[in-house]
């Protein structure tokens, strides 16, 4: 049986159930698996725990699953761009576990690499470390954090081959590669699909062993931009337009 499925609904068939833990890739709206999120919304599956750096915006990304109340708990580092999220959280309808971004990334990486826990200095002396085991190494204090392994990972890649080897593009890579390694089933939505052998094997980011199912984005797939910032052309440029962030 091949790894390529005809659409997002087919690619998720048989793997969704209430109460499951889902890794969802992306940073802001960059590199999010929007097709697969829409298919999860359409499935009606609920009480989800979603691990994702952010929670989308009101009308895109995970914001769609918040609107339909399919998410019970988020594990994230920053959720500032979503009014519906704030409303549900303040009303006590949604649980949130904040993780420092690097700790979140490492927890997922560890989960996929068979490492149940690790020690980090991030968060030592803050609320994040409360109730967690700490230990001294070489005279410094570190806090123990657990790996996370999910039931399902949904990721977005730029290219895939039919073996499931994945290549990401620019900053759309972010959390996708670790998440692809850290779930019982990983489903990748990809912008381009090629035959095995057509990707340079030296340039593959996620080896095919991690990718169970693939769905190709339709030609009209819209990659949203959250904060469109531009500079003027040189003739008109005056003042500080070299703002990298």
């Amino acid at each position: 049986m091949g790894k390529v499925y005809p659409d997002a609904t087919a690619a998720l068939a048989g793997v969704l159930r209430d109460g499951m833990v889902i890794h969802s890739g992306g940073f802001g709206l960059c590199g999010i698996p929007a097709l697969l999120i829409e298919a999860i919304r359409a499935s009606g599956v609920k009480d989800l725990t979603v691990v994702s750096n952010n929670a989308g915006i009101d009308d895109a990304g995970l914001g769609l699953l918040l609107k339909t109340r399919q998410i019970r708990k988020m594990v994230s580092s920053y959720v500032g761009e979503n009014a519906e999220f704030a409303r549900q959280y303040l009303a006590g309808e949604l649980e949130i576990e904040f993780n420092p971004q690097g700790t979140l990334a490492e927890r997922i990486r560890a989960g996929g690499a068979g490492i149940p826990a690790f020690f980090t200095k991030t968060g030592v002396g803050t609320d994040v470390a409360k109730g967690k085991e700490t230990r001294e190494f070489d005279g410094e204090t570190y806090v123990m954090e657990r790996g996370i392994f999910a039931d399902l990972a949904i990721v977005h890649a730029y290219m895939a081959d039919t073996e499931g080897n994945l290549v990401y593009r620019k900053t759309a890579r972010n959390f996708n590669p670790m998440m692809a390694t850290a779930a019982k089933v990983t489903v990748a939505q990809v912008e381009h699909l090629v035959r095995a052998g057509e990707l340079d094997a030296d340039h593959i980011h996620t080896p095919g062993i991690f990718t169970k199912r693939i769905v190709v984005c339709p030609p009209a797939y819209d990659k949203r931009i959250e904060q469109r910032t531009v500079r003027k052309h040189a003739a008109a440029a005056a003042g500080p337009d070299h703002l990298p962030r």
């Binding site: 709206l29 960059c30 761009e81 949203r224 959250e226 904060q227 531009v230 703002l243 990298p244």
Partner: peptide, 16 residues
Amino acid sequence: FPYEGEEDADLINAGK
């Protein structure tokens, strides 16, 4: 920042 019309959805900073 990119010139207008040259924005790339896959190329953002930590402020998005």
